[in-house]
Amino acid sequence: MNRPPTLYEPAGPLGRKRQCVFSVVSALAVCALLLGIGMRLQSSGQFDADKWAIFLHWGTVRFLLDGLVSTIMAAACSALAAFVLALPLALWRLSMRPWVSRLAGAYIEFFRAIPLLLLILFMVIELPALRLDWPALGFLVFAMALHHSALTAEVVRAGILSLPRGQREAALALGMRPSQAMLLVVLPQALRSMLPALISSVLAIVQDTSLGYVIPYDELLHRSQDVSSYAPQSLLQAAFIVTMMYGLVSAVLLYLKRCVLRRQGRALARGVTKRTRTGAATVVEAAQDVCAPAAEVNSRE
């Protein structure tokens, strides 16, 4: 029986016991740390009702929810623009023409190397000098699209390279042009396989929208700063609530990613089972074809 390749040898009985002990000790250490932090916050009065009272008003809740909507809108626009730019970049990066591949590689390496915060500030300072007076959302989306398109292009390129070369060769053998083979055969399969990685890219974009507070764009983090400036005693509470709201969006995306991974795993298992059954049926048919002449000879004798 062939064993699946692994990066390390599976642990034995003693190794599994050690891993269990380390897991229990680590969990107890984390619980003790959280308990110590909670006791420190309790002693400093961070759980007092007057510091949380502002978040019980519907006006404050609606104010933060509007900031969350602005964050999601900026993330959605940035993700769409980044993917639209990343798709041709990945194809150009894989081009057989050296100058096209080098230009796409230079773009990717350049915008990957620039910190996103500096890129946002550069857009805000320089674009108005070129008479491009956009709203804050436009500056944020443009900067994030340039930065994340370079990152997403590498994800798309890795997904294309992960497919077997036989897919493209079979399409070319059927008479397709290289561009048709890429767009109609290779790219759809690559997009399906790299969907979990694309969801992780969207999660990174959602988290990076918090940098819009420097513009300032009226997103969730900026709204929390407005709340804490109105109620300075609730600074830590505002940061905690905003962190939970970001965590909720991240949890939804991670759940979606797990659902996609489970669905791909079930599809792969069904494909393996179908190929196994097909192979077994082929072996049986071949055996019958081999045994049939011998049975006829014996019957004649």
Score class of each variant (00 low, 15 high):
residue 2 N to S: 02
residue 5 P to Q: 05
residue 7 L to K: 01
residue 10 P to W: 02
residue 12 G to V: 00
residue 12 G to K: 00
residue 14 L to C: 00
residue 16 R to Y: 00
residue 17 K to L: 13
residue 21 V to F: 00
residue 29 A to Q: 03
residue 31 C to K: 01
residue 31 C to P: 00
residue 33 L to W: 10
residue 34 L to V: 06
residue 37 I to S: 01
residue 40 R to M: 01
residue 42 Q to H: 05
residue 45 G to T: 04
residue 48 D to H: 12
residue 49 A to H: 04
residue 49 A to L: 08
residue 52 W to R: 10
residue 52 W to P: 11
residue 53 A to V: 05
residue 58 W to H: 04
residue 62 R to M: 09
residue 66 D to L: 11
residue 67 G to S: 03
residue 71 T to K: 06
residue 76 A to G: 11
residue 78 S to G: 15
residue 80 L to G: 13
residue 81 A to S: 13
residue 81 A to Y: 06
residue 85 L to G: 10
residue 85 L to A: 07
residue 91 L to H: 09
residue 92 W to V: 05
residue 97 R to H: 05
residue 105 G to D: 10
residue 116 L to F: 12
residue 120 I to G: 13
residue 130 L to M: 15
residue 130 L to D: 05
residue 131 R to S: 10
residue 131 R to G: 07
residue 132 L to A: 14
residue 133 D to N: 14
residue 139 F to I: 01
residue 142 F to I: 06
residue 142 F to L: 11
residue 151 L to M: 10
residue 156 V to G: 04
residue 158 A to E: 06
residue 158 A to N: 13
residue 160 I to E: 12
residue 162 S to I: 11
residue 165 R to P: 07
residue 171 A to P: 14
residue 173 A to L: 15
residue 174 L to W: 12
residue 181 A to H: 13
residue 181 A to G: 14
residue 184 L to S: 13
residue 188 P to L: 14
residue 194 M to L: 15
residue 200 S to I: 12
residue 206 V to H: 09
residue 207 Q to C: 14
residue 213 Y to C: 01
residue 217 Y to V: 04
residue 218 D to W: 03
residue 219 E to W: 03
residue 220 L to G: 02
residue 225 Q to T: 02
residue 226 D to P: 00
residue 230 Y to W: 05
residue 232 P to K: 08
residue 232 P to W: 09
residue 234 S to P: 09
residue 235 L to R: 11
residue 237 Q to L: 08
residue 239 A to Y: 12
residue 240 F to A: 15
residue 255 Y to F: 13
residue 257 K to G: 08
residue 259 C to A: 14
residue 261 L to R: 10
residue 263 R to A: 11
residue 277 R to E: 11
residue 279 G to E: 11
residue 283 V to P: 00
residue 285 E to P: 00
residue 285 E to G: 02
residue 286 A to F: 01
residue 286 A to T: 05
residue 286 A to R: 11
residue 290 V to E: 08
residue 292 A to D: 07
residue 294 A to K: 02
residue 295 A to M: 02
residue 297 V to P: 01
